[in-house]
Write a protein that binds this DNA or RNA. Structure first.
Lengths: 173, 173
DNA sequence: GTCTATATTGCGATAGAC
DNA sequence: GTCTATCGCAATATAGAC
């Protein structure tokens, strides 16, 4: 049993995002989310009064995770662009899970589309500040998008990352 | 009024894919597909006996469009990799529409996931045969995936393509 | 704060007329 | 080959007990 409201809300958001990732929008019903979080549907609706609020809660948490990630990138120093690509290939982190969930939602939700657009802009700015080269910043971001996109249908990105690093080496990166 | 069964089936697949692209899986109901194609729900279900068959029909058509596209790529000669990236940035073609639809479906449909995986394998093989360089083939494919991914939330890919071409020029491509 | 029960709507699918 | 009418079910949301 959750000790306070915040814990239960986090558990509900976790369940919502996992169900989105694994079964898509149609699998993330209020019944399924409540069951996965270990509460009843009435319990869920006490914390998030409607499905729209659940979506809003997920996108707000994504925004916080992205802010944290941007700070982590800045801490990577010279390896910033490599850190970006390595984390693009990562699976199963809270940020990754939230991003996949937002991508699912973006199919039919304008707020989710906007959240993803803003996320990309934040990452591009950091990459571009670091590299001082919009051509390379855009190219690296697209490669990261590509690796992220491919997770969707279960392709391992370790091999992809190795290929990309060979190409970056030819470019002096 | 359609002159034959084939025309009506194509119109239904068009309507299905347009609704998937514009409103996601939850927007592509049988009622909505039938209405957009200008027939009744009963009329739709005469041609496709269930939603599963409608999905199957869409994925089969995608497979044919991909086969055609692979032939077009091979006809592009030395520019094959550039042709690939330029068409990755394209919006509104029958192939593009079918791909976006399959991506929507892949969220909750294993067949759609497999169709997209097979599509990527076919494109990688063509790129790799042409370039004779798995590192570059994979990198270019990821960039194409990235541009495709970004269409989803309404970003123009013309600028992205220009940046990428500048980087490819540094690599002698 | 969490529960059960229920109202309401909308979807996929069937039946049968034309 | 296309239609209308309808059944059964699942999903969101509400009401009210504990």
């Amino acid at each position: 049993m959750a000790r306070n409201s915040t814990d239960t809300k986090e558990k509900l958001l976790d369940a919502f995002e996992i169900l989105l990732d694994e079964h898509g929008t149609s699998g993330a019903t209020l019944d399924a989310v409540a069951a996965k979080a270990g509460v009843s549907k009435g319990g869920l609706l006490y914390h998030f009064g409607s499905k729209a609020e659940l979506i809003k809660g997920s996108l707000e948490r994504l925004s916080r995770l992205v802010d944290d990630d941007v700070e982590s990138m800045k801490s990577a120093g010279d390896r910033l662009h490599l850190y970006y690509l390595e984390t693009s290939a990562e699976v199963g982190t809270p940020l990754d899970r939230s991003l996949i969930a937002a991508n699912c939602l973006s199919q039919e939700n304008a707020d989710a589309k906007n959240a993803l657009r803003k996320t990309r802009e934040a990452w591009f700015d950091v990459l571009n500040d670091h590299l001082g080269d919009p051509d390379m910043a855009m190219t690296i971001q697209l490669i990261g998008d590509g690796m992220y996109f491919n997770q969707n249908f279960g392709l391992s990105q370790d091999e992809a990352l190795a290929h990309v690093k060979n190409v970056l080496a030819r470019l002096g990166l």
